[in-house]
Design a protein around this nucleic acid. Sequence first.
DNA 1: TTGTAAGCGTTATCAA
DNA 2: TTGATAACGCTTACAA
Lengths: 336, 336
Amino acid sequence: MVTIHDVAAHAGVSAMTVSRVLNGSQKVAPATRQRIEKAIEELGYFPNALARGLLSGRTQTIGVLVGDITNPYWTAVASGAEEVVHRNGYTMVLGNTGSSQDKADQLIQTLVSNRVDGLLINDSPRKTLKTLIKRDYPIVLINKEYPGIHADTITGDNFYGASVLTQHLLDLGHTRIALLNGPIDDSEAIERERGFRKTLQDAGVEANGAWILNASYHRHSGYQPAKMLLTLPPDDRPTAIVASNNFIALSVIEAARDVEVRIPEELALVGFDDFELASTIYPFLTVIAQPARVYGMQAAQMLIDHLNSPGHWQISRRVFTPELIVRISCGSKLRR
Amino acid sequence: MVTIHDVAAHAGVSAMTVSRVLNGSQKVAPATRQRIEKAIEELGYFPNALARGLLSGRTQTIGVLVGDITNPYWTAVASGAEEVVHRNGYTMVLGNTGSSQDKADQLIQTLVSNRVDGLLINDSPRKTLKTLIKRDYPIVLINKEYPGIHADTITGDNFYGASVLTQHLLDLGHTRIALLNGPIDDSEAIERERGFRKTLQDAGVEANGAWILNASYHRHSGYQPAKMLLTLPPDDRPTAIVASNNFIALSVIEAARDVEVRIPEELALVGFDDFELASTIYPFLTVIAQPARVYGMQAAQMLIDHLNSPGHWQISRRVFTPELIVRISCGSKLRR
DNA sequence: TTGTAAGCGTTATCAA
DNA sequence: TTGATAACGCTTACAA
């Protein structure tokens, strides 16, 4: 590896002068500068960011940890974050936890060891989070809250979202409504279930415990529970399903197709998280849309503001109100 | 930031002993070890990978640069790469070039400055690549070749893929076939056009230059050219389109819907790159499937083998033969 | 305008 | 089994 000293020797100056050219920090004679730039070019010199970071304590790098990189929701978050990160002269490092706590923990260890200046986190073990916070490490949580953990947060209003979705189904005349929810310990899933139950209750409809099921948020995890619901005896079967994310909604579509239940004619389907193709896949999905890209941008901006703030940063939670997009999977655009 | 010396002081030992515990490299008395582990825990110490990397020259990190992180093809590549990278004790750092040469260049600069041990690259300026190769920096190119650049490469056989797709359409009786290709200077696009033209020629069908159009590989870039093709006067209009990637195929579906051309009844559509939802979106797409996940895994393995090889690494190109998956967008499963 | 010296946090080497 | 020292590549502070 070529070092600053190699460049210096090649240009017949000291390392310090090369450093000054690199950083444009102080005056360097034009002739000297030219010689140095030529040397850099000829030697193919890349400054060593490790040495720099070691000295300065900053790496101009921000880590982003998402649960599932194959989910368009999270790539939208990441791509929004990246835009802001990049625009502010930082580099984004993207990590994929695959919703595994161990992997999340390991990734955080690695990123912090590499002294990224801050972290955008979706999923992490509580303990790791506590350590980070104790050490005043700048983090922003995205779409997740941890009871007892006080940190900057960007989320959607899941209680509200679930309420709107459920109310929409009630308004269409459904009373036999199932919830295909995320993991039982997920903060979003918990809020969604609360919103779901409360809305039913307010409407005087009794929630059926057998119709409230948990899945992971991964691509096919909703398939089995969906199939289970759809193969219940007709009298016992829900007429509508609320899916807790985009992948779960897709699984419902697939299960319905496999057991020959038509959406929306025989089953109304609504879900969380809009995605590009929701309007291209038949039956076009009625969803609570969360502006994932905006979440990513806002979270990144929040983190960068924190990094740029002189020392007294005020922790805050920013909760976005998601929006109902009615398409046809709920059947509301059908004549009944 | 807590350093190894803080831990050492806290445990009443020297930094060296802490280092030994951290790396399990040499014998440490059990009692001492325990005290140190307790100190690490209490202080919330994270080793500084910058210092480590500076000393060792290795960071156990691999950079992956993809063109478009919102394209499922590339997330599949990335997720395959990550599996292998992770399994081998490295960390993957994912960068998104957005198909911008400047950004790719900047990202490579940053990653190399941060001394990632190697790079998986899809898109990069030639010049940067040349510099990397001159400096013997381990890289693997994915789905891209640069004339005059000699580097490890993983690609699909695009000439073959285009030939198979085109032949399939010819076999179905089409002779008026359009190619909605990628960027004009993209190595994959060039090969695909070659395969397309050659297959037509061998069948004695003359290629219509006005039906060979270029788009970028991004989400909506195929829409305008597709619409253009589909609004040509009936006598001048192709009856079949070969789309050069998944996003272009989606754009064709959208354009066809907007101008009320039915697929596959009035237009046969085939494309490159299978993706999860290709079989969920109607009309289910007939595609040349490239095992993106496998490409990612193979590329990562190749890079790691290179890193582990004592010094004499043989550069090679690995070309995969893609596979035709016939669904219904080409119309071959329709009675004619 | 340019150069010297010290130190960032680790670990390899040698010594105790 | 443990410790002292030097070095990795760079930049800040100071000196020339």
